[in-house]
Design a binder for these strands. Structure first.
Lengths: 244, 244
DNA sequence: GGAGCCCTTTGATCCACATCAATACTATTC
DNA sequence: GAATAGTATTGATGTGGATCAAAGGGCTCC
């Protein structure tokens, strides 16, 4: 749509108040005036190219990041080189919360595709959330949600077999795509089999075999990174009826 | 000890300002006047007998809990009965953060021994932390620390072998006992082999065998739940030099 | 302080996933 | 549009920890 309105319009268009992710993100539950206050705080945006780091383990912590476009993975690396993907993040989700505790980041955040984040200086966020109760509460909910999510991953890693883990992963992805207005049953994974494996505590070959098995059983149609879920109840059954 | 002093004295003795756990807990970093404000907020204390629940998954969320005495485990239970211990908590640590996100708890908290917690009504904590910057910041650090800890557990569950997991667990316990003024090398575990196994994603037999192996190799002296660490560097070596 | 029960240890066997290996597919890059 | 590197699939074999089993030890609770 061509427009003769001044440049400021473009800026407003990328502000929280105009962002279509605001129900998933930090502005959730804020009234319009409060969202405007948040807008002032969210200054810079930062573009991150595929495979580049948003931050690295050990980096000083000054800001958290809301994903505006694209997606990321976070991972932890041990001295001996072993690494573990701790999460995949999509638009509207917040990155960097790990840095609050020590003033330094404790994991790496890497873009899975060309992405863009909103930089939210943390001390200013704390300042504003002392004034805006709804912002404070939403921020606490976001942190708590991360803790609950992590517990789910622990359950997955500690008690589930390979196919259950992959089923849980696919259902989780489906649910998150749905929340963003995409198809629940058809989507494109941005991460490799190796990265999925690292997240699920499996080797990439095991992930690949599980995908093949799901395909044989008519649960999903897999074409590389393109996934079509054919039998959601079937996947859910895999999770609940533990056939051990 | 019989006493003729008024009841209030006893109450003050158990207040944050008088609590020897205050450097580990919520009052950390607060000046004396601010700690007094926190004292007013922390009203009730609650005694929990061994094996009893502090809260259950599904319970409504109204408060977080600081452990004054004793210890707890938290676990998540799946519909099919499988469960996973997500953490062990000691004095000065905070329980219940999982409840913020949905207003309902998403895990169970169970006392490993007769214990006592300080009940911190959450809405009042949010209110006070809007006024007291240092309290706000300390609370955020505590939540962030939980997230970082969870990432460590994911690394453990996803990438380590049985003996590495147990070594990491023992070193972590040692460090936490040390922070509480106890011996770094000699302590009493409050949880069973089964609970350790659940936390580490292992069966109790595997935990038992790993303990026996550590004993044979002179790394620790194990007598049921009483542990004496004989070779801390040896345990650390087990972690870093991944002999796969 | 004794009975009963839960917890722990240890051994034998099994199996799910890792590892090793080769091939095929896809996407980039020039 | 051919060359190349990264990614994915599939097969054969190995192994760490699970499972099954049995006995011993130490708490807890009357």
């Amino acid at each position: 749509m061509k427009s003769v309105v001044p440049v400021t319009t473009t800026e407003i268009k990328t502000a929280c108040s105009q962002c279509n992710l605001r129900e998933l993100c930090l502005p959730f539950g804020l009234d319009p005036r409060e969202v405007d206050q948040l807008d002032e705080l969210v200054g810079a945006r930062r573009k991150i190219k595929r495979q580049q780091h948003l931050y690295r383990s050990g980096d000083g912590f000054e800001a958290i990041y809301a994903i505006r476009a694209g997606s990321f993975k976070t991972d932890v690396i041990l001295e001996d080189g072993r690494d573990q993907v701790t999460g995949f993040q999509m638009t509207g989700e917040v990155l960097g919360l790990d840095g609050i505790s020590t003033e330094h980041h404790s994991c790496n955040a890497i873009a899975l595709e060309d992405s863009e984040v909103c930089v939210i200086p943390f001390s200013r966020l704390e300042e504003l959330s002392r004034q805006v109760e709804s912002l404070q509460h939403q921020f606490h909910k976001i942190m708590s949600r991360e803790i609950v999510r992590d517990h789910g991953v622990m359950m997955l890693l500690g008690s589930m077999r390979a196919e259950e883990r992959l089923a849980a992963f696919l259902l989780n992805m489906s649910q998150r795509f749905t929340a963003r207005g995409f198809s629940p049953s058809e989507f494109h994974l941005r991460m490799t089999r190796d990265e999925i494996g690292s997240y699920l505590g499996l080797k990439l070959e095991t992930v690949s075999r599980a995908f093949s098995r799901f395909q044989e059983e008519g649960l999903v149609a897999v074409q590389q990174k393109h996934i079509r879920i054919l039998d959601t109840p079937g996947l859910k059954r895999l999770l609940n009826h533990h056939a051990a």
